[in-house]
Design a protein around this nucleic acid. Structure first.
Lengths: 245, 245
DNA sequence: GTTACAGTGTGTATAATTTACACAATCTTA
DNA sequence: TAAGATTGTGTAAATTATACACACTGTAAC
């Protein structure tokens, strides 16, 4: 959470609230969203510049205090809506951070959420906001413990993307297999064999050929596919997938 | 968290604190420990009987409000120490639960921790407490949303045990391969081939032969092994372990 | 002390999966 | 119409997972 008063959300001064809570010996609760996007074959994260004293020029995640009348998930959705103008995005809780000195404005426990959005959609919804996309792999310093939170979420994503089909949320509804492979290569920082990658995905039988082709590419256009989420949900999860550590 | 005043921890009435917080529009923070044990070839969980009105005869996880001066992890450790008398146990945060109506005594967000203890050790440290071990697979009803929390932690454990060597925390320092296999079979609810299971673990090269044998078994005693955690930590994690969903 | 019993310890053959690798087809641009 | 770039495809080799059986060792019963 950054302490800048969020554009359209709480109308009280968050920092003041926290100080008050702390003097009462009470712990505040916030939600911080790690909003991932994929653009230019790189994994990006949506950040805002902190305006808390001593943290100018540092970037911060998008967050806010949890309201008394809302669930944690609702709070995370609210932040997403306010900051990206987008609804219907992938959102999942990652973990909580509650170190005593983690936030300079008072004792506050934050619940980190990872969110995956189609960055192209977001570009269209230009809100009056000061948020910008940053390359995940080159961010040097951040406010508070937000670098830690970001890195925990990034590592979570690296693992999660291999066992759950959430990567598609970073892509348009229709995508080429090359785009999908670029996504995996960028997030995992590996090179993959194109033929084996295709074979693997086709063997899962969850991609549907849309019948359409890429446009505006300076070479032979690839086929466009769609992920069949319904089919995925119907698959039974196996309990034993092999010890590997 | 159960609202019974914990035996040796907070001296204030937790329920009263929560009501006060709620009337101020403030959210309380608690930690709930899902303490797993393994005994009689079954996965067990340590529970306490709730004494909150309307929840008599229901079981509850062990938890408490987070103190203002302690980290979340510290709070979880504190509960563990108080309830099991054990130090040096495996503890990992699983996720937070913050539904608005989840606790009848007021708005409280809880951070669930999974903990894995050697149940034999715990048996020795008999504290003045009302906690008991229960079979995870046959628990019918629990107080508040604790059944949900327990099941989330159980599913977490089923996955986690296959990708991280935390299962050893449920066993004595020295264990036979049969015990280890029983552990995996019980937690995952599968039958595994004995020879392939052994082959798999030996190929990881993380088990050390202690030179000792089982005692008090009514048949040929098996060799006892020790898990080499140092060796495990030195292994480099691979980023790509294959898409599987 | 001999025997039945129960569970340990081990190896190999087969199947399934993963990896490595090359060339023809298609579209764009010059 | 030719050059360039990327798509689309198959097969062989290596690795990994699975299925399966018999000799060994200690205990307990007689």
């Amino acid at each position: 959470m950054d302490l800048k008063t969020p554009s359209a959300s709480s109308h009280k001064n968050v920092s003041t609230i926290l100080k008050q809570l702390e003097s009462d010996g009470i712990i505040g609760i916030s939600v911080d969203c790690v909003i991932f996007g994929f653009d230019d074959n790189e994994l990006k994260v949506l950040l805002i510049k902190s305006d808390l004293e001593g943290f100018e020029d540092k970037f911060s995640l998008l967050g806010d205090l949890v309201h008394n009348h809302e669930d944690l998930d609702q709070a995370a959705y609210r932040i997403l809506r306010e900051r990206t103008g987008m609804d219907d995005v992938y959102l999942e809780q990652v973990r909580s951070f509650g170190q005593i000195g983690r936030h300079p404005a008072g004792r506050v426990v934050t619940i980190a959420y990872a969110s995956l959005v189609n960055i192209e959609h977001h570009k269209l919804k230009i809100l009056a906001n000061e948020v910008h996309w940053h390359r995940v792999t080159t961010i040097s310093e951040m406010a508070f413990d937000h670098k830690t939170i970001l890195m925990v979420c990034y590592e979570w994503l690296q693992r999660r993307i291999q066992e759950h089909p959430l990567g598609f949320s970073l892509l348009p509804k229709q995508f080429s297999l090359r785009e999908l492979q670029n996504l995996y290569e960028a997030i995992l920082d590996v090179k993959l064999d194109r033929r084996n990658f295709r074979k693997k995905f086709f063997s899962m039988d969850l991609l549907e050929d849309t019948g359409e082709l890429e446009t505006d590419v300076p070479h032979r256009p690839g086929k466009l596919y769609r992920f069949n989420y319904d089919k995925y949900k119907k698959k039974e999860r196996k309990k034993w997938f092999g010890i590997d550590f």
